[in-house]
Write a protein that binds this DNA or RNA. Sequence first.
RNA 1: UCCCCGAUAGCUCAGCUGGCAGAGCGAGUGGCUGUUAACCACUUUGUCGCAGGUUCGAGUCCUGCUCGGGGAGCCA
Length: 466
Amino acid sequence: MIRLDYFKRFKVKDILNDNIEEYEDVLVMGWVKTFRSSKNIAFIELNDGSSFENLQIVVLSPEEFPLDDIANGASLRVEGYLDKIEGREQSVEMKAEKIEVLGEAPEDYKLQKKRHSFEFLREIAHLRPRTNTFSVMNRFRSKMAYAIHKFYNERDFYYIHTPIITTGDAEGAGEMFRVSTLDLKNPPLNDQNEVDFSQDFFGQETGLTVSGQLQGELLATAIGDIYTFGPTFRAENSNTSRHASEFWMIEPEMAFCELDDMLVLMEDFIKYLFRYALEEAEEEINFFNKWIDEGRKEIIEEIIESDFGQITYTEAIEILENAEEDFEFPVEWGVDLQSEHERYLTEKHFNKPIFVTDYPAEIKAFYMRLNEDGKTVKAVDCLVPQVGEIIGGSQREERYDVLKEKMENEDMDLEKYSWYLDIRKYGTVPHSGFGLGFERLLMYLSGMGNIRDVIPFPRTPKSAEY
RNA sequence: UCCCCGAUAGCUCAGCUGGCAGAGCGAGUGGCUGUUAACCACUUUGUCGCAGGUUCGAGUCCUGCUCGGGGAGCCA
């Protein structure tokens, strides 16, 4: 009979940090990370997920313990006493007095006592959280999610929940996943022989959200400063290391805020998160710096120290046209900046993060505020070395007539977005907002090269296991 | 979606101009009085991604497909 004592057990982290008061009759539970035994002594390294470091369990009389059932991956309940030791790698260890095997791990356990490739680990995403790298990553993810809330909470922003199920591909941000309860094999048809969505669950076509921005604007123009932080879905057939079909996005939206004011907040936000990672997730950052990308810590520190640059799109084009660099894609005013252009600007020309503002209206979304020149809009991309664009945002078009005209020019269904226009009709105010991909942030801070390795259960085209 | 590369033991990979399927690691067994991914000895391991084709003979050459990786586009 196995006895569990949830509240009595100590977490490994607290034992290693000497954050406990009793050293006798200590109870721990966890999984075997590695196991060594000889005739008269055995060592078990136990990990319970509370820290990266393991607790070393020392078995002084192996024949009295059920060591045959212990293997890499097995779960144990161990009672014993703590021993502070000197001259070894660990300063504290536990001498076992009683070991219960909660769950054995047969020899086909796939996590071996050696390094595995990230590609292989993705195939066993149910077990990879138990590896060093992914336990670190999942703890880091949790800490950084908290940092986001902390930043906005300290600035009196309200955390709002925008809908997951929405009715429109709002801004052409991407293809939507359909949400429907219709019978796929035999859908109801209308007079034109098209699928009749009026008979669907919501009485209209619906899909998973591609952005919470439009609803975010509604809340911002009511309670001031808000942010969203939730899952976002894009049904694009994107096969890259930087795109996932399901990802988490942070989208702040500020009333009475113009573009230049927002840039201050954006820089502040980035630096706050980077500083938080160095200070509050030191163990994780050190791990990444050692095992994932050497020098990552220095890059983070440099960004915290730097003053972000700021140029307009037009200035960026001039710089690129005068650059002594062979670009694959030619540069001229009016074209969208390619990755190679963005990286040239932030890495070679400025060698620090920069804001590029005031893009041509044609290459940006309908809701961005038109400038006096009638050609450019108050858009901003924040470019950082090694990645390119990490944040995109804009001041929103708050003038009813201007917005309506732009929507008409893009053949949008004004009826469907009447609520969005209403905000400009009744007490309209200048407002601005931006979007940060949470996984992109984690990739940048960790140095991890593939988005599939910063989210526990990645969804990408042709892949939704686990 | 486009371009390039790849798929061989549980994992990482070698296998030349076509000729008997290999290594390291892991795992298993035994040994070892304090180990740090312990160490030493022995043992174990195959639908060569799938389907066709060429050939006396294909892991190797050809075609198609599937999946994976890198890059591009879309974007966060």
